[in-house]
Structure formats: structure tokens, C-alpha cells
Amino acid sequence: MKKTFFCLLALFYFGLPEVKSQTLNDIPIKDINVQYLQIVGRALNSGRAFDIEIDFGQATKIFSSKETRVKDENGKSVKFNSMIDALNLFCKNGYKFVTVYVNSSAERPIYYYLLEKTSK
């Protein structure tokens, strides 16, 4: 009980940590000016995380994933635990799920989630 009390006290004394938004191409996800986007995901070999790329029609360079990765406030790629983890992030940022399809002909299935921007 004492530990909980002191942790809460410390949070109020030092302030809650500032939550910064994730970005794509240095644009906050909620500010991407497109009607539709697609989350493309592949399970990593460990099976515990997903390699996620975002396609919203942007021009990308060959062999460069810089333009397709979600970054945190420090500019590092965000790691997702599952496709639903990525979907939840985008839903919190003004997108809604439309449909999903899977390409299972590859060694590791590739998941494609289509999202639409809500009219917030």
C-alpha cells in the first residue's frame, strides 16, 4: 500500500510523462491528409512482434522503409505486438477499419488492413 501511495505521490509531484504522438514521414498520424491508408504486416521470425509498414500512397525509395514506418517521439521505429496493436493506434488517431485480407502464399503470411479516415 505504501509503494502505491508513494508512486502516485511521485507522479503528481514530478508530473505525468508527456505523451507525444507517433509519426509517419515526420507527420503526426492524426494529421496525415488522406482518406484511406493500408497497414501491411508480417509476423517476425520470433512470432512475438510484427513488421508493420504503412501505405497511404506516398512515394517511396527502393529498399527504404523510412517513409513507411511509424516512428516514436525519438524518431525510432515503433514495434507492434500484433496487427491489432497497430490497428488500435490508427483507430485512436481518427481512422476506422474497413476490411482485411491475407496473402498466405508467402513463407510468412502478409496481412493487409484497409482503414478509412473518419470525419472528425
Score class of each variant (00 low, 15 high):
Leu87Ser: 07
Ala49Thr: 12
Lys120Ala: 08
Leu114Gln: 10
Tyr111Ser: 04
Asn25Met: 12
Val100Asn: 10
Ser105Gly: 09
Leu44Thr: 15
Phe6Gly: 01
Asp72Ser: 04
Asp26Gln: 11
Asn81Asp: 12
Cys7Asn: 09
Glu116Lys: 00
Cys91Phe: 04
Leu114Gly: 02
Pro28Asn: 04
Val70Asp: 06
Ala106Pro: 02
Glu116Ser: 01
Ile54Cys: 04
Asp72Pro: 01
Met1Thr: 03
Asp26Arg: 03
Ile62Asp: 13
Phe5Thr: 02
Val100Ile: 11
Gly47Tyr: 10
Ala10Gly: 14
Phe97Gln: 05
Thr118Ala: 02
Glu116Thr: 01
Tyr112Phe: 14
Ala86Gly: 12
Gly15Val: 00
Arg48Phe: 15
Tyr13His: 08
Glu116Asp: 00
Gly57Leu: 08
Tyr111Gly: 01
Val19Leu: 00
Asp85Met: 08
Ser21Glu: 15
Val100Leu: 10
Leu89Ser: 03
Lys76Gln: 13
Asp26Ala: 03
Asp55Val: 08
Ser77His: 13
Ile54Arg: 03
Asn103Asp: 15
Leu89Gly: 08
Asn33Arg: 13
Ser82Thr: 14
Asn81Thr: 13
Val40Glu: 09
Cys91His: 06
Ser77Cys: 04
Gln58Thr: 07
Ala43Asn: 09
Ser64Met: 05
Glu107Leu: 11
Glu73Cys: 00
Gln58Ser: 08
Ser46Asp: 13
Thr118Lys: 09
Gly57Ala: 03
Leu115Met: 11
Gly75Phe: 07
Gly47Asp: 02
Asn81Lys: 14
Ile110Ser: 06
Ala59Ile: 11
Val19Cys: 00
Gly41Val: 06
Ile52Gln: 07
Asn81Gly: 10
Pro17His: 02
Asn74Glu: 08
Val100Arg: 14
Ser46Ile: 07
Gly15Ala: 02
Asp72Gly: 02
Asn25Tyr: 03
Leu115Phe: 04
Asn33Ser: 15
Leu89His: 07
Lys30Leu: 10
Glu53Arg: 13
Ile54Ser: 03
Met83Ile: 15
Glu18Pro: 02
Phe97Val: 06
Phe5Gln: 11
Lys66Met: 06
Asn33Ile: 06
Asn45Gln: 09
Asp31Glu: 15
Asn33Glu: 14
Val70Met: 09
Arg108Leu: 09
Thr23Val: 01
Lys66Gln: 12
Tyr36Cys: 06
Asn88Cys: 10
Asn45Asp: 10
Ser77Arg: 05
Lys2Trp: 00
Lys120Gly: 11
Gln58His: 10
Ala106Ile: 03
Gln35His: 13
Tyr36His: 11
Asp72Thr: 09
Ala106Arg: 15
Gln38Pro: 05
Ser119Cys: 06
Leu115Cys: 02
Leu24Ala: 03
Tyr13Thr: 15
Asn45Trp: 05
Lys92Pro: 04
